[in-house]
Write a protein that binds this DNA or RNA. Structure first.
Lengths: 245, 245
DNA sequence: CGCTTGATTGATGCCATTCAACATGGGTGG
DNA sequence: CCACCCATGTTGAATGGCATCAATCAAGCG
């Protein structure tokens, strides 16, 4: 298991103030799928579940397992992954705070879920979650919206995996991260993923990621700061690389 | 536009008996997302839409367009595709009778939709469909189920695109088709896709598809019958190839 | 300080693409 | 009904991009 090792603590998501177990103080209550519930309904839902803490590297669900649990991510970053019989792995999704994980209304978990940083979840037994959802249209609607968005993003990613070159993949990835992490003033970003994980997201090898990165650095398109830091020096150039040949 | 040409009529889905415009006689009424609606509700929904016929090669929606329509597929096969700026195309999904197409609850169509065979749709303006769905939880639930399944299948396909070899891809594809088309007694299937389309599904080139196919034929794992026909002679061998190296 | 883990760099080989020629077959019109 | 034609599919040779194998470098940590 390549990733069952603690991640570098220096780059973990900073702790949020949500020690409480009530929804009233929850930091993701307005973004998560429970956002549209009445307070009373949300509290009822809350009673079905529990808050759990994960260490970086811990796996919550395994590919092919019975689907027993679902959860909201309160804090942290996790990866969704599948692998072939002989051990080749592909990351099929990366989820962040306020995202939803697990397979509701289904019996099989189609991919593993593993914490990339320390994380906190709002965890529900799938059965009771399903039951609650069936009685609350607003919840299903949010879940549908989110699933449709996921599907769109996943399909767009297929184009990258199948048709883009290593260089295009890395450029696309860096821009995506810049957008997602809302690069601070100077366009410096701290990657939440190791080189191996980047490779597993892009469907290439760790060596190729490294080579492309240093190549981009040599061309003064980016700058590399330590292991996880990247400064985007020339976004238009990256954009051009990301799109066409 | 590579596929805007009529497909070989010999392999089109055989005509179904559903000339009526009422739901009562609809051939997909028990599989489509409207299956759980009361008769009266289904009729109401029906009044919002209309039946349309497509010729093979016609495109119903273009990537990036405003999302104006959604539809149930009554008959035929269609492809969902995206492409890079410089024309590389990737098929991100193939849909069959009773499947749902279009992007409800969203403003952009994330991929094009093109008929591979002649087809018939039950078409709705997105706005009125969305409104109807908001008032009918059963419909949203079916749609959610379907979308979750799509997402699972799409993610599994990512592993193929990113990590499998050409040989593994072709083997996987043939098995998938065998399953989907419920190969008749002798395990003979009529591919609904041209070599080019198969290549676009698998993320490889047409020549590579061709080479792998003839290779498999030489090894007596399959037999090729004309352009579209394939007989699966040795499924276990295919299965072994599809999975690991 | 050695040890471990993650990242970079280098050398080599292979698989899939590319470019190109050729075959096939289904459809059409004389 | 056959000859022709064009789209589709197959086959070949050469190239190149990425993987693989392997060594080196750079950090963090006990």
């Amino acid at each position: 298991m390549r990733f069952d090792v603690a991640q570098n603590a220096a780059f973990q998501t900073p702790a949020r103030s949500c020690g409480s177990r009530s929804c009233a103080a929850c930091v993701v209550r307005d973004q998560a799928i429970c956002a549209d519930l009445k307070d009373s309904d949300r509290d009822a839902l809350s009673l079905l579940g529990r808050r759990v803490t994960l260490r970086a590297g811990q796996t919550v669900m395994w590919e092919g397992d019975d689907s027993m649990i679902v959860a909201n991510v309160i804090e942290g970053t996790l990866k969704l992954a599948t692998s072939t019989g002989d051990g080749r792995e592909q990351i099929v999704g990366v989820v962040y705070a306020s995202d939803f994980i697990g397979r509701p209304f289904g019996v099989r978990t189609p991919h593993s879920v593993t914490a990339l940083t320390d994380a906190r979840l709002c965890l529900f037994p799938r059965g009771s979650f399903d039951g609650f959802a069936m009685r609350h249209g607003e919840l299903q609607h949010r879940l549908l919206q989110r699933t449709l968005d996921d599907l769109d993003r996943t399909r767009a990613w297929m184009l990258l995996l199948a048709r883009k070159t290593a260089r295009e993949k890395v450029a696309t990835f860096l821009l995506d991260m810049g957008r997602r992490l809302r690069a601070d003033g100077d366009d410096v970003i701290a990657l939440p993923l190791s080189r191996q994980q980047i490779a597993d997201v892009l469907g290439i090898t760790i060596e190729t990621v490294s080579r492309q990165m240093t190549e981009l650095k040599r061309e003064a398109v980016i700058d590399l700061i330590g292991r996880r830091g990247v400064r985007l020096l020339n976004k238009p150039a990256l954009q051009a690389m990301a799109e066409a040949a």
